[in-house]
Design a protein around this nucleic acid. Structure first.
Lengths: 338, 338
DNA sequence: CTGAAAGCGCTAACAA
DNA sequence: TTGTTAGCGCTTTCAG
């Protein structure tokens, strides 16, 4: 940076007033501090002339508020999360906030580091889909009155704003639909860390639905993959799952990545959807309506979730008061051809 | 924030040394400044004990470097961009940098504001897929020696690092493939602002290929939609395009969003891909291999692009020297069933 | 080996 | 109506 940035004091210097005055005027507190209209105009004009742009870092240090927000998700390249990010960004921007976007990669340690990093960067608040087993780190932040809102995943004994979807009911509904269609041997494919609330609730939904229908769950039909098992688009384990359970006539997957893996595996095994195996998945991705066949799925109201997350965070930031609101929205079962 | 953060001076105070000393030790400059091993240990221990975490904002103000990077794309929820973001994030993190992620929404004014915002936030550098017509704003940054790297879209007379793909050749290849398959009436569906280099080059590729094959381009077969025309997944204009040109037997679209719109429109018109109309698109999205039929596409080496973008930026940041490197990678034509 | 002092750019009390 | 002063937390000369 060769050219020096213009600062408040360069303006003050130019027109021979104090930094304070310039600062006040520039922050619209001119009238409140009864500063001469004339002087105000001089300041404003000069600022424009010199193309003054406030240094947000300095301001942040002084005021303790940086107008930044941290967003932590498992993976920003997952469309579900990137859509949330976009919504959050738009809302945040409107209020002058910018977003640090972080991917935890479903790694507890990485998440903890990210959390710390964001705090060190003095973000004003954090939006978080946590992969943590023990929310101790989050608890500490809350104890310090740090604005934070969870989405997608909550913790049972954590008093923290949360927005998400009724995973249990939605899954139950989907399984119910499958049963109504005549399926009895329904596979359930999920991801492992059992402590992730959304995954846990989806599992409950599956179990409930089966139980309610008087159907026995065969253990082999429930499989939990580790997040790592999906790395590099390696779907071998899913293929084994499908191959080893030829009696399954339907599979429910708990997220979009699993659904893709499942489609791939089923295709590779030369089976057909839905003739041989039906497939319904949690999470809807735009392209699911164009797959072969179009995939039935449970769509979360992403826009709504993003909107509530950011607005409840902003509210916390402004009011300094933490509430314990659990926003549970309902998801929508979209039946297509799978 | 009820509990006060522990600062350097609280540590200094606790063990009765100066802030300077603490700062030096904590920054690993203890030995360089020949500070007593003993004292160093005391500082380190106390810092750990008090769980000291440096305030990055204060540091940023003092040093003028914030260890943050800005990423501006058209839309972070576009998988192409979110994948780039993820790569950039991973690399940046490794070096202690965090990412501000911004969507310009293909709006010039918004991009300019974003640029200014990032500068005000004192980011150390910017990665940018610009939607600007006139790169004046970028030029100014470069003049100030501000680290910046463009990707996906370059400007002819702007000395700036850039990484992207050979759009012209790649498109030419794709069109050539179509021609080889017997297509003569090939439609070309693109997005309007002509000044976006990638779009412009893809158009050139199309024109070249047609010309080389001695094929006449019928004007009606080339359509440019505004970015706004794709808002809300409204594909009416694409439908009209397809309907009004029944002689077209193939369509090339210049990005993934257009391809989706095209698939939708063709489906809605009751036509079949590829029997009635073939479809090839620039940009490959994971799910294109599962659509009906699997979509042929031109895949950019996203990982490579992200990697080069971030590493060349980091290099600029470190060396303070701007080069004018145009990294033109080659894209890969993936023929599937469309 | 260690510390004092200055200052990054800004804002908030408090004076005048 | 305006200015002085102090300080956010950190790093960096420079002086002991």
């Amino acid at each position: 940076m060769s050219k020096k940035r213009v600062t408040i004091s360069s303006i003050a210097h130019e027109i021979g007033v104090s930094n304070t005055l310039v600062s006040m005027v520039l922050n619209g507190k001119g009238n409140a501090n009864s500063i001469n209209k004339e002087t105000q105009k001089r300041v404003l004009d000069k600022a424009r002339e010199m193309n003054y742009q406030p240094n947000q870092v300095a301001r942040g240090l002084r005021t303790g508020t940086t107008k930044t927000i941290g967003l932590i998700v498992a993976d920003i390249s997952n469309p579900i999360y990137s859509r949330i990010a976009r919504i959050a960004e738009d809302y945040a921007n409107q209020e002058g906030y910018s977003l640090f976007v972080c991917s935890s990669d479903e790694d507890e340690n990485r998440e903890r580091k990210l959390l710390q990093m964001l705090v060190d960067r003095q973000v004003d608040g954090i939006i978080l889909a946590s992969t943590l087993q023990d929310p101790d780190t989050i608890q500490k932040l809350i104890d310090q009155n740090f604005p934070i809102v969870l989405f997608d995943r909550y913790f049972d004994d954590l008093e923290c704003n949360y927005v998400g979807v009724d995973n249990e009911t939605a899954t139950q509904e989907a399984i119910h639909h499958l049963i109504k269609m005549g399926h009895q041997n329904i596979g359930f494919l999920t991801l492992s860390p059992e402590h992730i609330s959304s995954l846990r609730d989806r599992k409950k939904g599956f179990q409930n639905a089966m139980e309610n229908a008087g159907l026995k769950i065969v253990p082999n039909h429930m499989v939990e993959l580790g997040f790592d098992d999906l790395k590099d688009k390696n779907y071998e384990k899913i293929k084994d799952f499908v191959k080893n359970n030829p009696d399954m006539t339907a599979i429910f997957t708990t997220n979009n990545n699993l659904a893709v893996g499942c489609m791939d595996a089923i295709n590779q095994l030369g089976k057909r959807i839905p003739e041989d195996i039906s497939l319904i998945t949690f999470d809807d991705v735009e392209l699911f309506q164009y797959t072969n066949p179009p995939l039935s799925s449970i769509a979360q109201p992403i826009e709504k979730i993003g909107e509530i997350a950011i607005s409840s965070l902003l509210q916390q930031i402004k009011s300094q008061e933490i509430r314990n609101l659990k926003n549970e929205l309902s998801a929508k079962l979209i039946i297509r051809k799978s």
